[in-house]
Design a protein around this nucleic acid. Sequence first.
DNA 1: CCGCATCCTTCACGATACTG
DNA 2: CAGTATCGTGAAGGATGCGG
Lengths: 102, 102
Amino acid sequence: MRAALDVLRGRWKPSILWELKDRPRRFSDIQCALEGASAQSLTLQLRQLEADEVIIRTIYPEIPVRVEYHLSEHGRTLAGLMDQLELWGQAHLARKTRSGGG
Amino acid sequence: MRAALDVLRGRWKPSILWELKDRPRRFSDIQCALEGASAQSLTLQLRQLEADEVIIRTIYPEIPVRVEYHLSEHGRTLAGLMDQLELWGQAHLARKTRSGGG
DNA sequence: CCGCATCCTTCACGATACTG
DNA sequence: CAGTATCGTGAAGGATGCGG
């Protein structure tokens, strides 16, 4: 439990997994999708996820250089949980709407 | 997604859900189980979870007073995810062991 | 385009003292 | 036993400037 929380520790980690869930993404794609995250934070958290073998980083030595991130098999199972978490979030919002609006 | 992350935001929230997963717990029980959490932090996070209707607070006006917390139905589904997260954490630790041990 | 180093702000958490 | 108010700490994150 502690270990899992540690892997997810960070403002953007869950969202990063969410973004990589269906397809690989470029650095700038992720930054755009996570509107509000600075390049510095993103890089750091990306590196940590990579160190935890949750995501894989691929460099394409083109000009300009292109870098893509995708989930490892290990990371895919974790992203699946993010999926469920998102569903729970939707139910939670629906509940709050009823509570606040009615 | 954002909504779900917001509900879980806090050092001890996931662990609190974890503790309440199977049975109701008293304030001091939780504080003991989460060894390292101060009463102040615990109170705050408990209140927030209560505001999000994830947990329910029950006061027994005995002497000394007794307070119990238990999951709402809504919270139970979230705690279920914590359960899965814990399983993932175990797999992750096993992987790291292999990685570290060679 | 990608990534890193540095500086600064934010804020969540912990320790303490006190109430009922 | 449970909860509240206040103060201090430290880590996480954001802005900026530079290099490949």
